[in-house]
Design a protein around this nucleic acid. Structure first.
Lengths: 263, 263
DNA sequence: GATGATACTTTACGCTGTAAGGAGATACTA
DNA sequence: TAGTATCTCCTTACAGCGTAAAGTATCATC
């Protein structure tokens, strides 16, 4: 029993996240038949396959052959489970040394990995960014970006905020794709059909559209980007935004480099 | 009764979003005592005050003096309610002509308004961006940004993706603040206390931290940004990221302008 | 006055996270 | 060896959720 309420929880959480080696005293009671990793793998599999909404304690329990309540001996509650899933899955991202051909290709590769990662695990985008940032594997992703950007000569304050900016941007762009796919699965209709059904009604519900939004209408007709045949519209658009937006941010970084004179 | 399943839903949704004027036939049955707007205001008030998790059909019903089920005569289901809340609240954002002192101050003002808006209505950040984009008031926000950026001379494809990039970035930065406040309220401890309790345990659970993440450690000590006395740490950090990141993106836009030669 | 549409309520179902209590297994101590 | 403490895991239970189904009261029309 811990005297100060809440403090014990913080220690428990941190030990789980950082996998503090369990004190190897011999303990009474039945040996645990499961491992934390097995539970996390099951939970991650469910979230990957069926989405975050399908992730329930009972579902995870069933997947490891137990009841939902059995998980509470391994994990304090569902929130902590999600935090642990979040950090564990980030171990997939490379933390090796960046390619040696300059910071810009390095950042592009880093962002590309992150982009692909979010496509593989879209549920990660629904996890709060505030709390679990203290886990070892997400630290590794940040460390990786910092190492790559370090060689650019960017000042520390700018470099740190550049990383945050990149995170926000990549997450946002990836979320569009994730939500598009989720909506498509949830409603049973493709995004294209969904979009088309509604767009077709626009002239009826908003006959003055072109008058109200002249700039949007003008820009849309001028847009030269064409979605490749057969590719999902929203996803192709999001990918293009990712490509262009990343270039924009990196141009901004270049402009902020010490050597570059400001215009 | 509609023949084609799903099609009726699309029409109903669009009519609600765009407020297609109701056909003024005299209809039998009791007069509706509520209005859609009253319901939306109640729902928005709950989400503002108690967060998205407190938004239930029963809670909204109670707030307007009805049962939860009564809402289903005004709105097809909870998802549509949220979509309508989402669009309605965007009406707060200015859609007047931008200030006339150039596109860059214009964009900064636009982004600042959006940033403040998300602080006021953090639940907006938890609404899928894919579906309700077709509402009139969010279109107005996009139109506004497009009008401001139009004068920069940016090409249409670049301009459209710049807007998306700005949206992703502002949303991401604002989400950090929103989640920080939410976590603080949910756990009952301030983010500073929470952070401190965990940071204090770091040397214990990760004694090799400085060896594993040398770049992060180095950059942190070099960071010259100091959170003003008494201000919440995470929020001040997020605000600084917003300021710096926006500058970065706008520098990127400037670099992409037709007049500017690429280095 | 009967008919049928409408606004709203009540009840009910299956789902959620998790508190509470109990069963069986194991390791220590007397 | 018996007793006890501690552990894993289960069953049960509770309050809350979205919403389907059915019932009641109200109104316009034929």
């Amino acid at each position: 029993m811990v005297v100060f309420a809440g403090q014990g929880d913080a220690r428990r959480s941190m030990e789980l996240l950082w996998r503090a080696p369990a004190p190897d005293e011999v303990r009474p009671g039945p040996k645990p038949a499961l491992t934390l990793d097995a539970i996390l793998d099951a939970a991650i599999a469910i979230a990957d396959e069926q989405g975050m909404d399908a992730l329930s304690m009972r579902a995870v329990g069933q997947r490891v052959g137990r009841t939902g309540m059995a998980l509470y001996t391994y994990v304090p509650n569902k929130n902590e489970l999600i935090d642990l899933m979040y950090d564990r899955v980030h171990a997939e991202l490379p933390d090796g040394p960046p390619a040696d051909d300059g910071w810009r290709p390095g950042v592009e590769a880093w962002a590309g990995e992150l982009w692909a990662f979010y496509q593989r695990h879209p549920w990660v985008l629904r996890v709060s960014q505030v709390r679990p940032v203290l886990g070892p594997h997400e630290y590794a992703v940040v460390e990786s970006a910092a190492r790559i950007l370090r060689v650019s000569g960017l000042s520390a304050p700018l470099l740190l905020r550049t990383i945050s900016t990149l995170f926000h941007f990549v997450r946002g762009a990836a979320q569009t794709v994730a939500e598009a796919r989720l909506a498509a699965r949830a409603t049973g209709t493709s995004n294209e059909d969904w979009w088309f059904a509604r767009s077709a009604l626009m002239p009826e519900v908003a006959p003055d559209f072109a008058r109200r939004y002249p700039t949007i209408v003008g820009l849309s007709t001028e847009d030269t980007f064409r979605v490749p045949e057969g590719e999902p519209y929203l996803e192709a658009q999001a990918a293009e935004t990712f490509r262009v937006g990343l270039g924009l941010i990196l141009d901004g970084v270049e402009a902020a480099l010490p050597g570059t004179p400001r215009t």
